[in-house]
Amino acid sequence: YTAFGDLEVFLHGLGLEHMTDLLKERDITLRHLLTMREDEFTKNGITSKDQQKILAALKELQ
């Protein structure tokens, strides 16, 4: 049995499950992801397509 964390649930909701391992390897938490700047997305290997999905979701949360 494995409990999913906030990061996994957030990514799954956006259809971005493939990013879970990448972000965990880089010790990026959901809190960090929510406050990242555009250059940090790129530096951490997050594609512009995935970045757009994340940023759109963040706008909806605000």
Score class of each variant (00 low, 15 high):
residue 58 L to N: 15
residue 43 K to P: 04
residue 30 L to E: 03
residue 44 N to M: 15
residue 42 T to D: 10
residue 8 E to H: 08
residue 49 K to P: 09
residue 26 R to E: 05
residue 32 H to F: 01
residue 15 G to D: 05
residue 60 E to G: 11
residue 59 K to I: 06
residue 59 K to L: 06
residue 41 F to V: 04
residue 45 G to C: 05
residue 55 L to D: 06
residue 7 L to G: 00
residue 42 T to F: 07
residue 9 V to R: 15
residue 35 T to M: 09
residue 2 T to C: 07
residue 5 G to M: 12
residue 42 T to Q: 12
residue 1 Y to D: 15
residue 6 D to V: 00
residue 53 K to G: 05
residue 22 L to H: 15
residue 37 R to K: 12
residue 20 T to W: 07
residue 11 L to N: 00
residue 61 L to A: 14
residue 57 A to L: 03
residue 34 L to C: 14
residue 48 S to R: 12
residue 50 D to T: 02
residue 15 G to T: 02
residue 46 I to V: 06
residue 58 L to Y: 10
residue 11 L to M: 05
residue 28 I to E: 01
residue 36 M to S: 00
residue 17 E to Q: 11
residue 42 T to G: 09
residue 55 L to C: 08
residue 17 E to R: 08
residue 48 S to L: 13
residue 62 Q to M: 04
residue 9 V to G: 13
residue 2 T to Q: 13
residue 10 F to L: 07
residue 20 T to Y: 15
residue 58 L to V: 14
residue 22 L to M: 13
residue 36 M to K: 00
residue 14 L to I: 13
residue 62 Q to P: 15
residue 56 A to I: 10
residue 35 T to R: 09
residue 19 M to G: 01
residue 21 D to S: 10
residue 21 D to T: 13
residue 32 H to R: 13
residue 7 L to P: 05
residue 3 A to I: 09
residue 1 Y to S: 10
residue 56 A to W: 07
residue 20 T to I: 12
residue 56 A to P: 14
residue 17 E to P: 06
residue 28 I to V: 07
residue 16 L to C: 07
residue 4 F to H: 13
residue 49 K to F: 06
residue 16 L to H: 04
residue 22 L to E: 10
residue 59 K to S: 13
residue 50 D to C: 02
residue 24 K to C: 03
residue 61 L to Y: 07
residue 33 L to Q: 01
residue 41 F to T: 02
residue 8 E to P: 01
residue 61 L to E: 15
residue 32 H to S: 12
residue 45 G to W: 00
residue 44 N to Y: 10
residue 15 G to H: 06
residue 30 L to G: 02
residue 4 F to Y: 09
residue 53 K to W: 02
residue 19 M to H: 09
residue 36 M to C: 03
residue 27 D to T: 03
residue 48 S to N: 12
residue 48 S to H: 07
residue 3 A to P: 13
residue 21 D to G: 10
residue 40 E to L: 02
residue 57 A to Q: 09
residue 33 L to C: 05
residue 18 H to N: 07
residue 47 T to C: 12
residue 59 K to A: 11
residue 10 F to K: 04
